[in-house]
Amino acid sequence: MTREEAEALLTQAGERSDKAFPLFEAALACAVHDDPDRDLAPVLDMAKASIDRLTQRLKDESPEEALAETMAGDLRLSGDLITYDHPDNADVVAVAERRKGLPVTLGVFYLHAGRACGLDLHGVDFPGHFLLRIETEEGPLALDPFSEGRVVLPSELSRRALRTGLMPDVAAKLDVLMSPISDRAVLIRLQNNIFARAQQARDWARAERSALRRALLDPTDHHPWLDVAAAREGQGALAGALQALSRAQVLDGGATIAARAARERMRLRLN
């Protein structure tokens, strides 16, 4: 798959409904769009192995146990505690090779395998730390893919929420804390992680690519185009930055004032 083909796939994914959104395929396309010169066979093989192993484990184990044992035990996927901010942690191809990554990157693999085996599994946009929600006969459970898929107890969820600065009355509402999000939102959260790290490292080319992927994944949102513009400005591509700001203005009149100010600043630089 070339970068152009990946971009076309992401464009198609962005046009699909949330229910029909192809999470794993789109995540692969994001990785190829970032770095197309890699072999996808290892990540595809691991994804297939995860489904095969989970299918066998579900015959004798509960859904949450089978999922954790498959992903963390059989496939050795875990959170990267040592080099948490390494760029590879946010890339599904690299994670398949290294067997470690960010919570949301690991979560993509959990979601792919679990859904393929009929599990009712969703991402949870928990503040500061991506989690998974799995439906069981006893009710919904929170799983932490970063911590080998272990179950996160309700009391711990509340403690984590309080540490992020949420008010006690909000931190006590488990239905809010465990509210499922769409697969599109899962992948956009992953791209946000990439953008933030690239921006901090002043890797403006990578920041631009991640912002562009967000724009393709959610073509109705103007915010990614503002980030595309900022990344292009960081590279000195002022004409391209102006084009991105124009896209933001077209999508949302609420962005007009901020975009207009940025455009005027860049026009002065162009002159």
Results as ranks from 00 to 15, higher is better:
Ala90Tyr: 07
His112Ile: 01
Leu54Trp: 04
Arg133Ile: 09
Leu132His: 07
Glu135Arg: 13
Arg57Ser: 04
Phe109Ala: 10
Asp91Thr: 03
Ile51Gln: 09
Arg76Gln: 08
Pro36Glu: 11
Asp45Asn: 08
Arg133Thr: 03
Leu58Lys: 08
His86Pro: 09
Pro42Val: 04
Asn89His: 06
Thr83Tyr: 05
Asn89Val: 03
Glu137Met: 07
Gly118Ile: 07
Arg99Cys: 05
Thr70Glu: 05
Lys59Glu: 15
Val104Gln: 15
Pro42Glu: 05
Ala116Met: 07
Gln56Leu: 13
Leu102Cys: 07
Pro103Val: 12
Thr70Ser: 04
Leu40Tyr: 02
Ala94Val: 01
Phe126Gly: 06
Ala68Val: 08
Leu40Trp: 05
Thr70Pro: 05
Asp91Gln: 01
Ile82Thr: 07
Met71Lys: 00
Glu61Leu: 15
Leu106Asp: 12
His122Tyr: 13
Leu54Gln: 03
Ile51Pro: 00
Asp37Pro: 04
Thr105Ala: 14
Tyr84Leu: 11
Glu65Met: 01
Glu97His: 13
Asp34Leu: 15
Ile134Gln: 14
Asp91Glu: 06
Lys100Tyr: 14
Ala68Phe: 08
Pro42Ala: 10
Asp52Trp: 00
Ala113Val: 05
Leu131Glu: 07
Arg38Tyr: 04
Gly118Trp: 12
Gln56Cys: 05
Thr105Cys: 05
Asp45His: 06
Glu97Trp: 06
Ala68Asn: 10
Asn89Tyr: 03
Glu64Ile: 08
His129Asp: 01
His33Trp: 14
Glu69Cys: 01
Ser62Gln: 13
Ala94Phe: 09
Leu67Asn: 09
Asp52Leu: 02
Asn89Pro: 04
Asp45Arg: 10
Val95Met: 08
Pro36Tyr: 09
Ala94Glu: 13
Asp60Gln: 14
Arg76Phe: 04
Glu61Arg: 15
Ile134Lys: 13
Phe109Lys: 03
Arg38Met: 11
Phe130Met: 08
Ile51Gly: 00
Gly73Gln: 04
Val124Pro: 12
Leu81Trp: 13
Ala116Leu: 12
Glu69Gly: 04
His86Gly: 05
Leu77Trp: 12
Pro103Trp: 11
Leu132Asp: 04
Phe130Ile: 07
Asp37Phe: 13
Thr136Gln: 14
Thr105Tyr: 11
Asp35Tyr: 09
Gly107Met: 11
Phe126Pro: 10
Asp91Ser: 03
Ala113Cys: 02
Leu121Met: 15
Ile82Glu: 14
Asp125Glu: 13
Gln56His: 08
Ala68Met: 09
Thr70Ala: 06
Ser50Val: 01
Ala66Leu: 01
Asp45Pro: 00
Ala66Tyr: 04
Arg57Ala: 07
Asp80His: 02
Asp60Tyr: 10
Val92Phe: 01
Thr55His: 07
Val108Glu: 10
Ala116Tyr: 06
Ala41Gly: 07
His112Lys: 08
Glu65Val: 03
Thr83Phe: 02
Met71Val: 00
Arg38Ser: 11
Gly114Asp: 03
Gly73Asp: 04
Glu61Gly: 00
Asn89Gly: 04
Arg98Ala: 13
Pro87His: 00
Ser62Ala: 15
Ile134Phe: 03
Ala41Met: 10
Asp34Glu: 15
Gly79Ile: 03
Ala96Lys: 06
Lys100Asn: 14
Glu65Tyr: 00
Asp85Phe: 00
